[in-house]
């Protein structure tokens, strides 16, 4: 007999996965709108952010109900804690997708003549990290989550080099200020999406293995041990 509690947990997971799919789609469409200079598509992203916010509230309510009424422990407790943090991360990723869509609107007025080559690479990497972080939650795969963490430094480096590139461009051509600042903003939003995808991956590791890996919390501790079959 499946218990009501297990149905509630399943429902929470399903809602979070749906929210993840919508957020990932928003990121991809926002980035596409930048490359294709598609202002109407960008505006659609800006206008539909409320949908993501509603998911976050729905998950918050489910978490409060389960904590208050079911007093979960062990892996159930970890799932609920992770779900709430992940939904918060996803909501913020949604906000960054809106920021990117706003860049599309700005670029339509001040498109730089020499767009950075780093932006397509950064976009691809940020979206891939988000997709893998979400997949790691769906499959409760700490290995996939770990693979997300290893890519965070790369996108940080890309963001730094992108900023340097814009600074050099601005030194050569002062007319480029507005477009250059918009490029820095775009790069920063992509880097933040990757950071939040990393947070999601860290939560998946906590969910799967009860390990807190954020802020290098584990470096001085012993690693995981094999699960006993009993």
């Amino acid at each position: 007999m499946e218990r009501r509690f297990e149905k509630e947990l399943e429902s929470l997971k399903t809602t979070l996965i749906r929210m993840g799919s919508v957020v990932e789609e928003h990121c991809k469409l926002a980035i596409k709108s930048v490359f294709e200079e598609d202002v109407p598509a960008a505006q659609k992203i800006i206008d539909s952010d409320d949908r993501i916010n509603s998911f976050e509230i729905e998950i918050d309510n489910a978490v409060i109900d389960i904590l208050a009424l079911q007093q979960p422990v062990a892996s159930d407790l970890r799932l609920i804690l992770a779900a709430q943090k992940i939904s918060n991360d996803l909501e913020r990723i949604g906000d960054h997708a809106v920021n990117i869509a706003e860049s599309t609107v700005q670029f339509s007025k001040t498109r730089p003549k020499e767009p950075s080559m780093e932006i397509p690479k950064m976009s691809e990497l940020a979206v891939a990290m988000l997709r893998d972080a979400l997949d790691s939650f769906v499959h409760v795969s700490p290995e996939l989550a770990q693979a997300v963490l290893t890519r965070d430094d790369l996108i940080d480096e890309m963001n730094r080099s992108m900023t340097m590139e814009v600074v050099e461009l601005l030194q050569k051509n002062k007319k480029f200020i507005e477009g250059g600042l918009e490029l820095v903003r775009l790069s920063r939003n992509l880097e933040r999406i990757a950071d939040l995808a990393t947070n999601i991956a860290e939560e998946v590791i906590f969910l799967a293995q009860a390990r807190i890996v954020k802020h290098h919390a584990e470096e001085k501790k012993t690693g995981p041990v094999e699960k006993d079959a009993n």
């Binding site: 970890r78 995981p224 041990v225």
Partner: peptide, 11 residues
């Protein structure tokens, strides 16, 4: 369908 793996605890 999401599946819960058996968690591993730290020592």
């Amino acid at each position: 369908a999401p599946t819960m793996e058996i968690p591993q605890a730290t020592q």
